Amino acid sequence: MMLEQVLRHLNNWFLVDIHEGTFTVENGSIALPFLLTNQYFRICGSVFNDGLHQYPAADLTDETFTGTVWALAVPKAVVVLAEDIAAWQEKNGEAVASPYQSESFGGYSYAKRSAGSDGSALNGWQNAFRDRLNDWRKLKGVEP
């Protein structure tokens, strides 16, 4: 899920509250009365379900776990940004991941800008969307 990658990259989960305890996933869903419909939440400490979900989630793996559920308030603008990044990644991801840095044929040539030997540091979605991502970035160590 691109949104989870974006939030991790930003070091910003838009945390509202952390609920600790023992939680049960039954028939693929979990009852979390402190969440609203369509609200994002993050599970930590589960064997099967760690990660970002949207409430009510119906695709979870049944289990009982002791851990935390983070209630999040992800702004719509960040969700749209993640959708834009996913579309960009779909269109450009293969070319960006290519090990080739330059190519020439028929009088045409190009070279990818690179910071190192693989170029990924400067050519991925993180660079393509740097300006929009920076608006939401948090410093390391600010949130759990």
Rank of each mutant, 00 (worst) to 15 (best):
P75W: 02
A31Y: 12
A86F: 02
L32S: 09
T64E: 10
L32I: 13
I85A: 09
V96E: 15
Q54A: 12
W88H: 06
Q89I: 07
N12F: 05
T68Y: 02
W13C: 07
N92K: 15
G51S: 04
N12S: 06
L35A: 11
Q101H: 14
N27A: 09
I30C: 03
H19M: 08
D84T: 04
V25N: 03
I85M: 03
N92P: 06
A87K: 15
L52M: 07
A87T: 13
T66W: 01
D50I: 00
V74M: 08
T37D: 13
G51W: 05
N49V: 06
I18C: 09
I18N: 10
L36E: 13
F41L: 13
G67S: 07
D59N: 09
A86Q: 09
V6Y: 11
P75T: 04
F23T: 12
D84S: 04
M2N: 09
Q5Y: 08
F14Q: 03
L10M: 05
F14H: 11
N92F: 15
L81Y: 07
D59G: 02
A82N: 07
L72W: 03
T37Q: 05
H53E: 08
R42N: 13
L7I: 03
Y55I: 00
A77M: 04
M1S: 14
V6P: 10
I30D: 03
E94H: 06
I18T: 13
E20R: 03
F65Q: 06
H19D: 03
A71K: 14
V16N: 01
Q89D: 15
M1K: 03
I43S: 04
L3F: 07
K91L: 11
T22Y: 12
L72K: 02
Q5F: 06
N92A: 08
S29N: 11
T64G: 10
K76S: 06
V16Q: 15
T66K: 15
F14M: 12
V80T: 12
R42Y: 10
S46W: 10
F34L: 10
H53I: 03
L52Y: 03
T37N: 07
L3N: 13
L35H: 00
F48T: 00
S102I: 07
V80G: 00
V79M: 01
P56E: 05
I30K: 12
R8I: 11
R42D: 06
N92D: 01
W70R: 09
A73R: 05
F65T: 01
G67A: 07
L3Q: 10
L10Y: 14
M2V: 10
N49H: 04
F65P: 04
